[in-house]
Design a binder for these strands. Structure first.
Lengths: 187, 187, 187, 187
DNA sequence: AATGAATGAGACTTCATTCAT
DNA sequence: TATGAATGAAGTCTCATTCAT
């Protein structure tokens, strides 16, 4: 019973690693089955098609990003904390972000991938907007701060460093500095 | 005489479009040849291998980004101008950025792609650094501004909006605002 | 169950016939698969590569030459009997020898073919040496007979008639006559 | 003018070497042209088809075997001398015999190759028969000697050692010994 | 649930040859 | 004579998927 789940998990993990290493361009089912120790036709009992397996990988990836916002912190600190956690993750688990990038690119051609990613991103978007709105309320940031644009800027920046673990920390720090209250509120 | 060049060009263009539309995952040579109106074996007369054709596409793409910095402008305006041009390009020619993203991802597995991209990026990096350094000299920005980190932030942000033409303008504007002198220098 | 073996067998036979008819120069996989009544990609299910199929053909051929020495006969008669059997085989199943010749030639470029053939030949060589040695012991042949050279002479002669079924009988008879006791022992 | 002949020669030599090294299985025109320093389509000005080039190679090979019988020697010595020269040639120029073997095998499928080889072999056959006949006349060998069979035995033996330079000398010596007068005439 | 056999589409690449220049 | 472009047939091999066991 859990055997079945374990097999599925093993397949998803193997697929995840394969995508991280070779991208979708080189993503083949046979090696995945082999890595899970089963015959390649048995794989189809767990995932009817290749697309199904990819969907499961996407779900696996997004599930790793359950928002871990620290609502007890003040807005600016919360933003900094959040970005630092991401920067750390990029360094510690680079494959996660590589696969996410592959999926992002793939979403352009695959509607269902796009939907899943969009849904996931919306949660993130909302959480970021909450930070900025709260910060404006608390006069941490000026009323003139464009919340929507700021949210997108943060998101774009994070996406832009997904492939550059070595630059992650300095980039998020620089972004936080630019958003730091002492500068913006005095404007 | 130029017939020959035209054929090559036609193949590169067809390949470019195919990658833009289907990514490398679905990149096949036969349709490329067909799009250029030649037999698929004739394609190998121009590009011995698939990799050779991809290299030509990469060159084609990077050649579109010959630095168009406006050195007559003051630093902050130059940065804004530069980013606005990129934002416009993302809207006007989104495929260019999609393909660039595909290549960026591919560079992780293909050494020669990586080298070419790195070389191209270095030019961009240098130009951005020049802007910030000049700005600091002219007291547009504080001496405390971390130039390297700022450069990487700009690059990351641009990479992060490559797939989102709809957000490009507001994101680069927001970034420019954060870098705008009146805020930073008074800090 | 034996279906599977039959398929393999059928492929090996088809390959054997194709080599006999067209040599390795014209040896193509698609017709082999067609002759066995299967899709050409299914062939790869049984033999991963062309070389694997060729190895199977080689094995098939050598297995047809299981030594059939008649140890109950006296040495000279044994030699004659052995050579006559070969001469008959050359006439009755010429393709077997043609393919063997192709493989011999191929062994020059293919190490693994060479190893297999050498192994097979060694058995033959030993059996022939046994005949001559025994004959010398029994004073059928003079002590001065060069066993090693005689063995190689027999082998060379047999190889030399593989392509000439029409000459096989007279050649082996002539060789036997030269080795006939009444001539050699009186020397 | 001789330029043209030189080119042809160069192509034939290159083809000869290629066949010696890779056999007909791996015989391709492009490398031949390259080895002769010309474009692969230019090759077709000298040899309209691949078969034409092969025919030229065959001619080149057979021309190397102009009978060099030493008619001043007595029959037995002439045979020995002839076989020794062949044994030496097998050691000194093994490629010549390798290519000859390839051609022999090919003759089974290519009528024109067969004709050329047969014609060449007939000359050799006649020369050998002359030796044996003369020997019988001079009472070197018994009247009972089967001339035709002896000729074929010699030919078969030589063909059988073409691929074994290391065994050539001992084999021809052994054959000569068996044909040596002191043994046969006393029978 | 699991497998090995089978399939058919299709991948990239190479070849001998011809044609126009 | 020489060449580069072009062709089309064919090469080996791989893939995702289905089917019978």
């Amino acid at each position: 019973m859990t055997e079945q789940l374990d097999r599925r998990q093993a397949l998803v993990h193997a697929a995840f690693s394969a995508i991280a290493e070779h991208g979708f361009e080189g993503f083949r089912l046979r090696p995945i089955a082999a890595a899970a120790g089963i015959d390649h036709s048995t794989l189809h009992h767990y995932f009817r098609t290749k697309a199904d397996l990819i969907a499961a990988v996407l779900e696996h990836v997004t599930s790793q990003f359950e928002a871990t916002m620290h609502n007890d912190l003040e807005p600016a600190a919360r933003l900094r904390q959040h970005l630092n956690e991401i920067a750390t993750a990029v360094v510690v688990r680079p494959e996660l972000f590589v696969v996410l990038d592959e999926l992002d690119l793939r979403a352009r051609r695959d509607k269902s991938t796009e939907v899943d990613i969009d849904h996931d991103e919306q949660g993130w978007r909302d959480a970021l907007a909450a930070i900025f709105n709260e910060g404006i309320e608390q006069h941490v940031w000026s009323m003139n701060l464009n919340v929507a644009a700021s949210v997108e800027l943060v998101i774009a920046t994070v996406k832009g460093i997904r492939l550059r673990p070595d630059k992650a920390e300095s980039v998020v720090n620089q972004l936080c500095d630019l958003f730091s209250p002492e500068r913006l509120t005095h404007a």
